[in-house]
Every structure is written in C-alpha cells, then in structure tokens.
Nucleic acid binder design. Structure first.
Lengths: 176, 176
DNA sequence: ACCTGAACACCGTTCAAGT
DNA sequence: ACCTGAACACCGTTCAAGT
C-alpha cells in the first residue's frame, strides 16, 4: 500500500495499462498482456504493483483528473459542460467505463480528486448540492446508455441532452 | 436461435440462473455453478441452451418485464415512478445490473419489450420523446451510481431524486 | 436423447528457483 | 533486486464417448 517513490518501472506499467485500455478496451487489460507490453512475464509484474486492482485504481485516478480538466474548461455554461462531459466519455470509452462503471476504490484515490472533478458542476447549478448530484447522475446516465448502445436505433441523443439541460436551466422550483 | 417449445429443462435452467443472480450476484452465475444448480455438469447445459449469452439475454427479458410492471403500477405520478424505479433496482441489484449495465441483446428480445417498459415514462412527461429519454437516463444514472457505491459517504440520495423530479416537473422551457 | 470426463485456451495469483 | 517457469484454482466451450 506504500505508494513508493515512483519507481520508473511502475510508471511504465501504468502507462502501458492506460494505453491498453484506451486502444483495445478494458477486457484487453490482462496481467499477461500487460506484462508483454512492458517486456516481462505476468508474475514479474507483482514485484512492482500489488495486484490488478491497484492498476485499475491508478487509472481511475488519472481519468478523473483528465475529465475534471475537460469540465473545468467549460465551466459556467451548463450546455457546454454537458457537451464536454459527453465528448470526453466518447473519446475515452475504456477509461470512462473504468471510472464511472466500477466501484470507486475511494481509499486508493488521492484526497480531493473526486471533489475537484465535481466542483465545476456544483458551481454551474448555483451551489445546490442535490441538484448538482441529480444532474451529474443524469449526465452519467445519458453517456452510460450511449456507450452501452442502449438507445433505440435512430434515437436523437443530442435532443435528449438538450432536454436535460433545459430541465436544469429552469429556475429550481419546489412544487411538491 | 429457435426459441423452442419451452422444453421444461430449459425453463429450469433459466429459473436457476435467475435465482443465482438474485441471491449470489452476477459473478456467481458460471456455467459450472449453473450446472450444479440444476443437477448436471456444465457441458450438458449446451444441449439445452446455445451459450451463456443466451441465458443472460433471457434474464434481461424477464427483468425488463418485471420492471415495466413496477413502473406501470405508479403510472402518472412522476415522483412515485421515480420511487418505484429506484425500489425495483435496489430490490434486484443483480438483475438491474444485467438489464441496465450490459449491452442489450436486442435481437434476442421479444418485439416490444423495450417499448412496453418505457411507455409509462413517456406518458408521464407528456409524450415528449426527448424529455422522457433524458429522464429515463437520469433515473438510470442515479440508481447506477447508488448501486456502484459512487456517492460520497453520507450523500442524501432522496434529496437528489427530489431535485431530479423537481427539474422535470417544471413546464418544459426552451430557453436556448 | 441426454449426460459425462477430458481437454483446450484462457484468467489472476503464488512460489520456488535462478541471476 | 529483478525476472522466470511451473503450478493452482478458476473461466467458457468443444468433443468423443458412454447410456
């Protein structure tokens, strides 16, 4: 569990793992393929990393940071943030799946990584924690269904995003 | 690909598969465990079903129907439908994951299964296809994040659902 | 017609052994 | 200190063989 002093070899392994997920998809990341990518056999990997879960957690960390930057670049404009979120996910489907569809290894993430990624969204909906959570979940749901190919053929996904942003741009009513 | 005449043994296998997913989770459904549950070895299963994907597709079909009924029972009231959706998912986490987090084997589903499940939702948002799609995705996202344990500890998930319903109960504005 | 054991090509991981 | 091959307990699936 020691994060170690960035042993060089360890970084190589994580870089190779990220590239495997990006180019071949999440299922292509096996200990044997990862070993081959860095020029060793699978058992040798365990001298540099604890287990496969640690590799996955490291990729989650990287992906959260990358996505956080993409969102921050669109800060303030809800529609632009929606587009940025969707664009990042479609550009990095493997990493998105890793980050959004697996249990977060929260104890392995650096402090604040999660909050940093969410901050621009919270600001954009006026600081309402619950509204921002609902919007975040909705964005996740739209992307998730798209990546899982769950929309009926011919569905107008752009229009669904517009409908979402429209719903959340209206002033927060409490008509309960 | 012939659906066959409900050979009895085939139903037994699907029933056992459903129970395995419900009680032990999705990873506990292996061809070997499934064989054991119906009293045969894994290879013998292939005399009754084509492959594991066919079993999963059959469970998706059953789950979609069950969830559709749950939603129909709350038809008309958006807040009640949200509660029904969430309640169904939390009561059947294994089946929910199967149905909502895996690519739909659409070609294996009975005609109309998907549309039937979605119909009450479309009606509840006044027939707007895009709004209903956004709301459906949002509900999925909220449940998905909850099941994946992705909310920060202590998050008020009820309040997030309320925020979602509030946003979609406001009249559809087009302030673009 | 139905079920079997043996086998194949995979997994993640452990461990004794080599350098 | 680092890497190896062999092995273990798993996967889904195929297939020849038994009844």
């Amino acid at each position: 569990v020691t994060t170690a002093v960035a042993s060089g070899r360890r970084q190589e392994i994580l870089d190779a793992a990220e590239q495997l997920v990006e180019t071949e998809g999440i299922d292509a990341l096996t200990m044997r393929s990862l070993g081959a990518a860095v020029g060793m056999r699978a058992p040798s990997l365990y001298k540099h990393i604890h287990d496969k879960d640690e590799v996955l957690a490291a990729l989650q960390q990287r992906a959260l940071e990358s996505m956080g930057h993409a969102l921050a670049g669109a800060a303030g404009d809800l529609r632009a943030m929606g587009r940025a979120y969707r664009a990042w996910a479609l550009a990095h489907p493997g990493l998105y799946e890793l980050t959004a569809r697996r249990p977060l290894a929260r104890h392995r993430l650096s402090e604040g990584t999660e909050a940093d990624a969410a901050a621009p969204l919270v600001a954009a909906v006026g600081g309402d924690e619950h509204r921002s959570r609902a919007l975040w979940a909705a964005a996740h749901g739209l992307v998730d269904l798209e990546l899982a190919d769950r929309y009926p053929p011919g569905a107008d996904i752009d229009a669904a995003w517009d409908a979402l942003v429209d719903a959340f741009e209206a002033p927060p009513t409490r008509n309960r």
